[in-house]
Each structure stands twice: as C-alpha cells, then as structure tokens.
Simulated assay, not measured.
Amino acid sequence: MSGSADRSRKAVKTYVPAYQKSEWQSHADDLEMSQSEFVRTMVQAGRKGFESATTEPASSDSDPGGDALEKQVIELLSADTYSWDELLEAVSDDIESRLDDTLEELQTNNRIRYSGRHGGYTTVDGDVDGD
C-alpha cells in the first residue's frame, strides 16, 4: 500500500448464515479480536494466499502454486467426508499459525503494535516496508 493511500474507513456489509457468524465471533473472542478485525484479518490473509497461488509460475506436478493445498485436500478427503466449512477450517489452520507467528515477530521487532484506539494492529511510526 502506498503512503498516499486513502486510510479512511468505509463499511463493508455481507450476509452469512447465523451459525457461521457465531463461529467467527467465537474464534474472534479466542483471539481477543473484534469481529470486524477478525474478518478483516482473515480476508487479507486469504487474499495474500490467493495472490501467491495465482502469481507463482504454473507447476507441472500435482502441487500447483507449490503450497501443497491440493495434497492436503486429497489427504483429508481420503480419510473422511467434509462440509465446505469443515474443510476450510481444516486447511486454514496453518495460515492462522503463520499469521500468529508473523504478528509476534513484527511486535518483537517493534515494527507493529496492537492499538485498541486504532481498532487493531498498526505499524509503528508509519513503518510499512521495514525501512
């Protein structure tokens, strides 16, 4: 994101089944995040995963994008039947761990901090690219 990007806040609305909203709220509570912060974080994490999978060179083997998602899905489905939500939960656990590790490292290196006033994580002194 460039330094001149519009950082004002805008509402985004979506509709999900009640059970899914409840699951998201519970997960957000476990992570000590607001539901808005949780959804924003998961969308951004998903976008990053999608961008890397679509921008990497095509793979000639059964592991397109090099992220082993195809193998993981096949292994899970070989052992049992999953609903979409169960399958998503099973494969997204790794991104949660990676995000948690990354946030911890960035906070340790004083590059980001959690700010309730700003509604979530924020860079320290406008540090966006580590310079």
Rank of each mutant, 00 (worst) to 15 (best):
A68P: 01
A58G: 06
S59D: 05
S83Y: 08
H27S: 07
L106V: 01
A58L: 15
T81V: 14
Q25Y: 09
E56I: 05
D63T: 01
F50K: 06
Q44C: 08
S36C: 10
L99C: 04
R117C: 00
K10Q: 09
V12M: 14
G116T: 02
K10S: 07
D131W: 06
A53I: 04
T41L: 15
F50C: 07
T102R: 15
D30H: 12
G3M: 11
D131S: 07
L76D: 00
F38G: 01
D85C: 08
M1N: 04
S62I: 04
S8Y: 11
A45T: 01
E51S: 08
Q35D: 02
T55V: 08
H27G: 00
M33R: 15
D125A: 10
D127W: 03
G130W: 12
S26L: 12
F50Q: 06
S62K: 11
Q25L: 10
M33K: 05
R40I: 03
Q107E: 11
T122V: 14
Q25V: 03
A11T: 06
D30M: 14
D100F: 10
P64I: 03
L99S: 01
E75F: 05
D100I: 07
E75S: 11
D101E: 13
T41E: 14
S59T: 00
I112C: 09
F38A: 04
R47F: 13
S115W: 04
Y15T: 02
K71T: 00
Y82R: 04
A58W: 13
G65E: 02
A5S: 06
E96I: 05
E86N: 07
A58C: 08
L76R: 01
N110I: 00
A5N: 04
A79C: 05
V91N: 04
T14M: 15
V16Y: 14
D93Q: 13
Q107V: 06
L99A: 06
A28P: 03
K13G: 03
N110Q: 12
D127Y: 05
T108S: 13
L31D: 00
R113H: 09
A11L: 10
A45D: 05
A90F: 02
D131L: 12
R7S: 09
A45K: 03
S36V: 02
V124A: 10
A5L: 12
Y121T: 05
T14A: 15
L69N: 01
P57L: 12
Y114E: 00
P17C: 05
L99F: 04
T41A: 15
V128H: 14
S92G: 03
V91G: 03
E89S: 10
K71F: 11
A18S: 09
L103R: 01
A79N: 05
T108P: 04
R47P: 00
